[in-house]
């Protein structure tokens, strides 16, 4: 069962940002999350997470000089939980048509073949809606989504930390696979093709996803 972890607060075609319901508990870097726009489920790979003050410009100050444990700071100032927020950004890597609205009753992905459903590994027609719930995909869904490795081509062009992101997301998805080694080899080969002549990048990623 996918678990609800946050809510979209900013969305564009290529990515969406969500605020976590729990402070300091964003989904792991590279993990697969999903949200919804009407009938369309939008899948994203967590590409960034940050915890900041809720008010722009008001930076938190150090409070622990007298405390023994870090947790004591939060115990002494319970309002901190309300003054801080954890946000994360996910890079949109695909979407599923014709399923919206049933997630809460039904749980995880139940196969592309289900009537009227189609999984696509490219950008959805519209961005997610603000305040759409964001769920962390469960094992079954991650496996299903990663049956096609087409999403890697989106990650390859993700910018500065693209290589880290690719490696992290592959590590995550691989961990859910029945045969992680085989999956990583398949992905590695796909990357070798995508990266073409960029052998150094390829080497960097391969060293990071070694099982």
């Amino acid at each position: 069962m996918s678990s609800k972890i946050g809510e979209v607060i900013e969305a564009s075609t290529g990515e969406f940002t969500a605020q976590c319901y729990e402070l300091h508990r964003p989904p792991p870097f590279g993990s697969l999350v999903k949200t919804r726009e009407g009938e369309v489920e939008i899948y994203g790979v967590v590409s960034r997470a940050e915890t900041t003050s809720i008010e722009q410009g008001r930076r938190p100050i150090a409070r622990g000089r007298e405390e023994k444990e870090e947790e004591d700071i939060y115990r002494a100032s319970p309002q901190l939980e309300k003054l801080l927020r954890t946000d994360f950004t996910a890079l949109v890597v695909g979407h599923r048509e014709g399923r919206g609205g049933r997630e809460s009753e039904k749980g995880g992905g139940s196969g592309e073949t289900e009537k009227g459903e189609k999984l696509h590994h490219y950008l959805p027609p519209r961005p997610a809606r603000i305040h759409s719930f964001v769920y962390l995909c469960d094992r079954e869904e991650a496996v299903q989504f990663s049956q096609s490795l087409d999403f890697l081509s989106i990650l390859v062009g993700a910018g500065v930390q693209a290589d880290e992101l690719i490696a992290a997301s592959l590590r995550h998805v691989a961990a859910e696979q029945p045969d992680p080694q085989d999956f990583l080899i398949r992905s590695g080969k796909e990357l070798a093709v995508l990266l073409g002549g960029e052998t150094n990048r390829l080497n960097t990623i391969l060293r990071r996803i070694k099982w």
Binding site: I185, K189, A192, W211
Partner: peptide, 11 residues
């Protein structure tokens, strides 16, 4: 062996 296997047939 992992890197070797990935590269063979691709790069």
């Amino acid at each position: 062996p992992f890197i070797a296997e990935v590269l063979s047939g691709t790069s």
